[in-house]
Design a protein around this nucleic acid. Structure first.
Lengths: 191, 191
DNA sequence: ATGTTTATTGACTCGTCAATCAACAACCGC
DNA sequence: GCGGTTGTTGATTGACGAGTCAATAAACAT
């Protein structure tokens, strides 16, 4: 029962199913058939739209990164001064859409994928650069030269909290995680 | 050409080869044959000694965790007061034996494995508990009730720095990484 | 010498999975 | 209603990899 204009719907369904499946399995070791079944179609169709398994993964990764970027930009929109801008980046990083069990698990797995896939590494590089420049842009007016160091620490801490959340399996509270990073930020801004 | 008493040598060689192979590939998606070849034997022999691929991975993980534990204990031995004890735990965590490209990469991959394997999760749980209690033991005499929070932050930061190092692919300087965490510690102890 | 244990492998089985293909079904413009 | 486009799948292919096994060889025990 083919409907026209199915391509974007199918692609979106596959991306969603990929994130869910990877999140459930806690591993990239999932089959195209599993993903396709979850998305309500045959594996052949998944190949038809994406060409290969790696392309499916990359599309899923792009989707996660896009959502994340949107959430940071959203938080950033309400910031009225440098300090609020830095806080917004942190808060955006822990927004409900990104800080979700399956998304976190997928995130961790994509980190691993970035170790063996050039395309994935590039993608992750884009995210890290953007995070860094977002942080620096708010930090520099406040602390000038030290901004680089503080941004590095904040980035690492955010990553670390994410990882721990992945292992805790959704047990870790979002607000608490966010506050931890914000507290660290305050400490850094005091000195 | 069979020599007697080969078992411990073979096991050690396989563990070493596993860490190297996983580190090189940046993924757990390596074959037993690859590992065995690197260790200079047939894949059948690897199965003979370990029974299954998962057991090989777990043995490799145990080896990494043991080395890590030894290094922390070594650093801890020279500490004369609580503050030095906390610093020692951090310094031990960035000792040369553990903070090595392939070990870090393997570490990251084992984090992923812990998401799908109970045995791996248990193992990682042991490490996290030990790290936590090591930190708390030094922190409590200094800051009392806040120790839990600070320990949590330190743990997350250490993990985060490791992850970043995995992606940087050995580019990240060990001393620098360690200093970053130590600086964070100092800031926390001031407040 | 002979039997037992340990070491070791090449060849094989069996399952799995990415990717392809041939065919079929609905919709469109005309 | 017909040719082309788009959507969809079951079946198939081809490769690869974990785990098993039978067979071989050295060391050791008696």
């Amino acid at each position: 029962m083919p409907k026209l204009g199915a391509e974007p719907i199918r692609r979106a369904a596959l991306v969603k199913a990929t994130i869910e499946t990877v999140g459930d399995a806690g591993s990239l070791d999932v089959t195209v058939a599993q993903i396709a079944r979850r998305a309500g179609m045959s594996s052949a169709l998944a190949h038809h739209y994406f060409g290969s398994k790696e392309q499916i993964f990359l599309a899923a990764m792009r989707s996660i990164l896009t959502l994340y970027g949107a959430e940071v930009r959203g938080a950033l929109a309400t910031a009225r001064n440098p300090r609020e801008r830095v806080r917004a980046v942190v808060i955006g990083s822990f927004a409900a859409g990104s800080f979700r069990g399956e998304a976190i698990s997928a995130w961790l797995n994509f980190y691993v994928l970035a170790q063996s896939s050039d395309a994935a590494r590039r993608l992750l590089g884009v995210y890290q650069s953007r995070l860094r420049s977002n942080l620096l842009c708010g930090l520099r007016p406040i602390i000038g030269a030290c901004a680089e160091t503080v941004a590095e620490g904040l980035g690492a801490l955010i990553d670390g909290v994410y990882i721990r959340a992945a292992l805790a399996g959704g047990m870790l509270d979002r607000q608490h995680a966010c506050n931890m990073v914000l507290a660290h930020l305050e400490k850094e801004l005091e000195g």
